[in-house]
């Protein structure tokens, strides 16, 4: 790691140090941050504006000319939602994401409870194996699972089942890791007292551990929701029928057919973005928590 820091440090020492030296005065800071803000905002604004521009305008001029000829339309959205099947794909995204968020939440919190508060042999070893599994790439499952799903006669590649199972399984190591580390911070006295009062593990889990861990569980839930909503690869592999594919897969198909029809592509990609943006803006606190915790994933 130190080697990598080294490369970062040595790559551009002169310009960077000059730039940083100028930070002493404050107006360069504002200018640089202003430029940074523009570089990070403008590309997204461009696609947003294009999604509302008439197709003929899009072909004739750049989106930035909108200032001189402000014409807007919803036609791109109508077309992409109905004729191009993005509406159905939107629903498919929801059908994939909701179980793929709830199942890992339930299974990971149960498993994390066992690893945090139930004593059993090899508990620490079990946990370390799960920490190791954090790094197992989804690709390792592709060949065996696609083969097994195909030969099992269960239709798991053509119904939602395969994507649900794969998303759930590959989300568990992170969920168990995150939640177990949160659960062990709960006050021991509280849980011991409940045990002495005769509370069962199920009761302790439901009435003490889960209610006290809402922030952590919410962070994991939001993280998992966004991860599955934004996922492309798992659906490419495990959702092999058109009628069950989510928006991300649909977009790549549109790209194959209409590579330069930016009105259509802009509207489609904004439809994919809108849900995460709403989640992000309304639940930013939890989201950042989840992401900070997720930095091991």
């Amino acid at each position: 790691m130190t080697a990598l820091e080294g490369t970062g440090v040595r790559s551009e020492p002169r310009t960077m140090s000059q730039r940083l030296a100028r930070l002493a005065g404050s107006s360069p800071t504002h200018i640089i941050l202003g430029i940074v803000g523009l570089i990070w905002l403008v590309p997204t604004i461009g696609i947003l504006i294009t999604s509302f521009r008439p197709g003929a305008d899009m072909r004739a001029t750049g989106w930035w000319t909108i200032l001189f000829e402000p014409r807007f339309t919803l036609a791109n959205y109508e077309r992409v939602l109905s004729a191009e099947g993005m509406g159905g794909a939107f629903l498919n995204s929801l059908f994939i994401v909701i179980p793929s968020t709830i199942l890992p939440l339930v299974f990971a919190s149960m498993g994390a409870y066992a690893l945090a508060w139930v004593k059993f042999p090899f508990r620490d070893t079990t946990f370390l194996i799960i920490v190791a599994m954090l790094m197992v790439p989804v690709q390792v499952g592709f060949i065996p699972l696609v083969t097994a799903f195909r030969e099992s006669g269960t239709g798991l590649l053509t119904n939602y089942g395969g994507v649900w199972l794969a998303h759930t399984a590959y989300a568990l190591p992170f969920g168990i890791f995150l939640l177990r580390n949160f659960f062990i911070t709960l006050p021991r006295d509280l849980i011991e007292a409940a045990r002495i009062d005769g509370a069962s593990n199920v009761a302790i889990f439901r009435t003490i551990v889960v209610p006290l861990s809402v922030p952590a569980i919410a962070a994991y839930g939001i993280f998992q929701f966004l991860w599955t909503w934004n996922d492309l690869l798992m659906s490419l592999v495990y959702a092999q029928r058109n009628s069950i594919q989510p928006m991300t897969v649909k977009i790549t198909q549109l790209l194959g057919t209409y590579a330069t029809d930016w009105s259509l592509l802009a509207a489609a990609s904004f439809l994919v973005m809108i849900v995460p943006l709403i989640v992000f803006i309304s639940l930013q606190r939890y989201f950042v928590q989840g992401l900070l915790a997720g930095s091991v994933k």
Partner: peptide, 24 residues
């Protein structure tokens, strides 16, 4: 208790991560 709480996650991890590693 450990078996019941860890069971569903454990089964999924075995079937979808551990077994595929070996099989791949």
């Amino acid at each position: 208790a450990a078996l019941i709480f860890l069971g569903p996650a454990g089964l999924l991890l075995l079937a979808f991560l551990a077994f595929p590693i070996v099989y791949t």
